[in-house]
Write a protein that binds this DNA or RNA. Structure first.
Lengths: 138, 138
DNA sequence: CTGATTGCAAACATTTTGCATGCTG
DNA sequence: CAGCATGCAAAATGTTTGCAATCAG
């Protein structure tokens, strides 16, 4: 989803469009990989729209609660956020740190087996891969 | 792996066996689900072997670095630890909080596809399921 | 003008670290 | 007795909250 599209949705839903909100959404849509609050803070500062960390955290909560973004957590302590789009998983390179999307998700089969074998009804899952990206293999 | 077995391994590798270390290992082997540091602190206190939180954190690091335990993180902020055994995933009930093991892991197929399609070499993955356990479905 | 948004400082939760002391082997 | 293990206090890290000031609609 593009920035303009999200902004329109927000406006249609009666939410205010502030400079900071716009900058955050803009940065998130430009980023291909999940972004941390610290990264957002720095990025906004560079772009001349500096915001307080509380603001960013509150904005992340707001955007998440309204399903504009999703939250992921990898091996480190911090949460990362990315624009909601197609359901996908991540390939985290343990060497360069680059994060890419996995092209497809085959977990639904596994979920069916879990229901059949153990009676547990899966509502959502989290799957992340760690390894070496094609660039770092050479 | 049982407590005695782990203790033996530790001793064979020249590590010291202290009261706290033994208690921690004992509790971890008795627990079927991943345990947090706070839980361990409480448990040890109840069992009369109270330890400082730094000690527990250091012990978790030690046991993890030596592959006696593995670390997992769910939706909350804290890490949880469990004895290394067969590779498995977790079924986290969003209602009662109970955590059970998924009976099998079918991710290797997915990993092969990732290598074929995207060239990314997966070294490890993390997969957790959230939903409703069979008990809470009624 | 009204309520959502923001900044600031302080609180909070979890984890880590430095240093002096104690205990295992 | 040497060196790992421990306790304590303090720091580091990431996140949340209360309150007063500001801004968008």
């Amino acid at each position: 989803m593009e920035t303009a599209e999200i902004i329109k949705k927000l406006r249609d839903n009666g939410f205010k469009i502030t400079k900071i909100r716009k900058s955050i959404i803009n940065h998130l849509t430009n980023c291909k990989s999940p972004v941390s609050v610290k990264e957002l803070l720095n990025e906004l500062k560079i772009l001349g729209t500096k915001a307080n960390k509380s603001t960013i955290y509150r904005e992340m909560k707001f955007l998440k609660d309204n399903s504009y973004i999703v939250e992921t957590q990898f091996e480190d302590r911090k949460k990362r956020f990315e624009i909601s789009s197609d359901h996908h998983h991540h390939l985290v390179c343990e060497i360069c740190g680059r994060i890419q999307k996995a092209k497809d998700c085959l977990v639904s089969k596994i979920e069916k087996r879990i229901k059949a074998n153990q009676g547990f009804l899966v509502k959502k899952h989290r799957l992340e891969f760690f390894g070496v990206c094609s660039i770092c293999q050479h």
